[in-house]
Measured scan of single mutants.
Amino acid sequence: NKEKKVFISLVGSRGLGCSISSGPIQKPGIFISHVKPGSLSAEVGLEIGDQIVEVNGVDFSNLDHKEAVNVLKSSRSLTISIVAAAGRE
């Protein structure tokens, strides 16, 4: 599966507009579980089932849900590497 990078700058009070969840035991990782229509996440093409592999240089493969949320909230400017639809297989 091809990795792609998206860049998101949080402007004003707009949030990311997506929710994440941890994958099942047999498929660990952090996946996008919800994308709000019209949100920044939707605008850059994030979709439900995409796996987040890295954010701002932080490897997401071994993070738990709480740590992942903290990384996503730690910066107003995010570089997110995803594997599209990895969670839909």
Rank of each mutant, 00 (worst) to 15 (best):
Q51E: 08
I82C: 15
A86E: 15
P24R: 07
V69A: 15
V11F: 15
I8S: 10
G45R: 02
R88K: 14
G87L: 10
L78G: 06
L78F: 07
F60M: 11
N1S: 15
F7M: 14
R14W: 05
S81H: 11
I52G: 01
H65P: 01
V6L: 15
Q51N: 04
I30F: 08
K36C: 11
K2Q: 07
F31W: 09
F31Q: 04
D50C: 02
A85Y: 06
I25E: 10
G45P: 00
K66C: 09
R14I: 06
S13M: 07
D59W: 03
P28L: 03
S39H: 00
G23K: 05
A86F: 08
R14N: 10
H34L: 05
V55W: 00
I25K: 14
G38N: 11
E54D: 13
C18H: 03
I48S: 12
S13C: 08
P28F: 04
R76Y: 07
I82T: 12
L78Y: 07
K27T: 12
A84N: 11
S13A: 12
S41W: 02
S22P: 10
E54H: 06
L10S: 05
E89D: 15
S21C: 13
G45H: 02
F60H: 04
Q51G: 03
S22L: 10
K36V: 14
E54N: 14
V83K: 13
A42R: 05
G49P: 00
K36P: 06
E43A: 09
L16A: 04
V69I: 14
R76I: 08
P24Y: 08
P24G: 13
L16M: 08
F31C: 00
A86P: 15
K27W: 06
K4H: 07
V44M: 09
A85T: 09
V44H: 15
L16V: 04
V83E: 08
V11A: 10
E54F: 05
D50K: 01
I82S: 07
V83M: 11
L40P: 15
I25W: 09
I52N: 00
L40S: 08
H34Q: 09
F60A: 05
R14S: 10
I25N: 14
I32V: 11
N62G: 13
Q51D: 01
D50H: 03
K4P: 00
I48R: 11
L46I: 12
L40Y: 11
S41T: 06
I8F: 07
I80C: 08
S22H: 10
G17L: 02
E89S: 11
G38M: 07
K2A: 02
I20H: 00
V44D: 02
S22A: 10
I80H: 04
L46W: 01
E43Q: 12
S39R: 01
I25M: 12
S21H: 11
G38Y: 08
F31P: 03
H34C: 09
I30Y: 11
L40D: 05
K5F: 05
S22M: 14
E43D: 09
G49T: 01
S77K: 14
V6F: 13
S33N: 10
E3H: 13
A85H: 11
N62R: 13
A85R: 12
D50W: 03
G45L: 00
R76C: 09
K5R: 09
S39M: 01
S21F: 08
A86D: 12
F31E: 00
I8T: 08
S81V: 11
D59N: 13
R14F: 03
G49C: 01
I48L: 09
R88M: 12
I30K: 07
A86K: 13
E43V: 05
V44N: 13
I80F: 07
E3R: 07
V55L: 04
L78P: 04
S81A: 08
E89W: 09
I52T: 02
K66W: 08
G49R: 00
V35G: 00
I82K: 10
F60Y: 07
G45T: 00
L78S: 04
I52L: 09
I32A: 02
G23Q: 06
E54W: 04
F7R: 09
Q51C: 05
K5A: 05
S21G: 07
L78V: 06
S21E: 13
L78D: 04
I52H: 02
H34W: 10
E3P: 08
C18N: 00
R88C: 13
G38A: 07
D59H: 10
E3Y: 15
R76H: 12
G23V: 05
K27M: 09
T79Y: 09
A42G: 05
I52C: 03
I25P: 13
G87E: 14
G29V: 01
E3Q: 13
P24T: 14
K27E: 12
I25A: 14
A42N: 09
P24Q: 12
S21Y: 11
I20Y: 04
K5D: 03
